[in-house]
Design a protein around this nucleic acid. Structure first.
Length: 171
DNA sequence: ATTTTGGCGCTAT
DNA sequence: AATAGCGCCAAAA
């Protein structure tokens, strides 16, 4: 297989790009293989050896800054279990400004009653922000938990920026 | 109104 | 191989 430019390679190690989000107070980094994103991370420290320019990264940072924009067309390549894949797929259709409960997402994924398992899928989400696990909240009100850096405080900022906080009970 | 109980799919002991 | 424990939920007590 001939490859003119490394950047267009579909295999091999993903390339990493990182930028800082003022709104989150965190670094956002993405791993890209070919033209697909394999991971997104939110971290306190800037990852070693990451480059800083990538169109997908720019769009993500833009979204974090404005709360607007649709990131749903950015192609993903995630290594997850079949159940998680299904859940993440449905999760990705939740538009900015909206929230759904874990239970609703379970039903929408064809697994009514698997609300808790959906929580697990969220916790393992390899691409936060692009797969908007922050838009999934407990039916009982409040924000629930958030696994990426900053925890629930980060979840709150994300929802606030998207104008979704009003739709969350008890906030 | 609050607490308990049983269900869910997966990962890490 | 088995169990515990998670970003939860709804029905029962």
């Amino acid at each position: 297989m001939r490859r003119t430019r490394k950047e267009e390679s579909d295999d091999g190690a993903p390339r990493q790009y990182a930028g800082f989000s003022e709104d989150l107070g965190l670094y956002v980094s993405i791993s890209v293989r070919g033209d697909r994103v394999t991971a997104v991370r939110l971290t306190e420290e800037r990852p070693e050896g990451a480059k800083d320019e990538h169109p997908y990264l720019a769009r993500i940072l833009e979204h974090l800054a404005t709360g607007r924009g649709d990131l749903r067309d950015i192609p993903l390549d995630l290594e997850v279990s079949p159940f998680d894949r299904r859940v993440l797929e449905v999760m990705r259709t939740i538009p900015p400004g909206e929230v759904v409960t874990y239970g609703e997402l379970a039903r929408a994924s064809g697994r009514p009653g698997a609300a808790r398992a959906v929580g697990g899928a969220c916790a393992r989400n390899p691409a936060p922000v692009l797969v908007p696990c922050h838009r999934v909240v407990p039916a009982s009100g409040g924000l629930g938990n958030y696994s990426a850096a900053g925890g629930p405080a980060t979840k709150r900022r994300l929802l606030e920026k998207e104008g979704a906080l009003a739709k969350v009970k008890g906030t």
